[in-house]
């Protein structure tokens, strides 16, 4: 079904259309929500709130843009609000410039599967995780991230660099473990 037609039907309040829209985007959007949160239950909460916003504000969607992109933007914003509102995340959501993690310059190839990569991103501290997601995955510039999170552009840059370094470090370790494992593994 054409997406514009689908949107029109949803605006008319047709349950089939609403269900269809949800089916089309729910899986990919849960992937987005999952990257910003620390548990599946939280991700589903964000997804639920996000889709409620989508349906209630669908009249604001302008058909020039891509529907998926518009929904994704709402999901990201909902996830950011969720992080701010929920105490467990607030504690971990710090942008102070600390050098807790070593910075690696080796950029490993991302050979792990998507699930493993997503899990790895979620292992990052919430602040790093948020900025990494916004910059590396969503494609926001540091200026935009600064505006979204109310922080300086420089802070966003430094936070991202540390998140990225930490992630690369983990990827390198995982790949070296994999090499060792494959090296010692007897050939059959």
């Amino acid at each position: 079904m054409d997406q514009q037609r689908l949107v029109k039907d949803c605006l008319k309040g047709l349950p089939q259309a609403q269900s269809r829209l949800y089916e089309l985007f729910s899986e990919s959007m849960l992937g987005v929500c999952y990257r910003y949160t620390k548990s599946m239950a939280d991700a589903e909460d964000v997804l639920q709130d996000g889709f409620i916003k989508v349906f209630l504000n669908l009249h604001q969607y302008k058909s020039q843009g891509e529907l998926g992109g518009w929904i994704r933007r709402i999901m990201v914003n909902t996830a950011l609000n969720f992080l701010k509102k929920n105490r467990p995340y607030q504690v971990d959501l710090s942008f102070e410039d600390t050098s807790l993690h070593p910075v690696s310059t080796d950029d490993p190839e991302v050979k792990i599967n998507t699930k493993e990569l997503a899990e790895m991103i979620r292992q990052l501290p919430t602040g790093y995780q948020t900025i990494f997601n916004l910059h590396a995955v969503e494609g926001f510039s540091h200026v935009e991230i600064g505006k979204m999170l109310g922080i300086n552009e420089g802070t966003s840059r430094s936070q991202y660099a540390r998140a990225r370094a930490l992630l690369i470090d983990w990827l390198n370790r995982q790949q070296s473990d994999y090499k060792k494992e494959s090296y010692v593994r007897p050939s059959i």
């Binding site: 899986e27 998507t114 990569l117 995955v137």
Partner: peptide
């Protein structure tokens, strides 16, 4: 690479 992999990332909600 990260963006590409994450775009493919899907999960089935309950």
């Amino acid at each position: 690479n990260v963006q590409q992999k994450m775009d493919e990332f899907r999960l089935h909600p309950s």
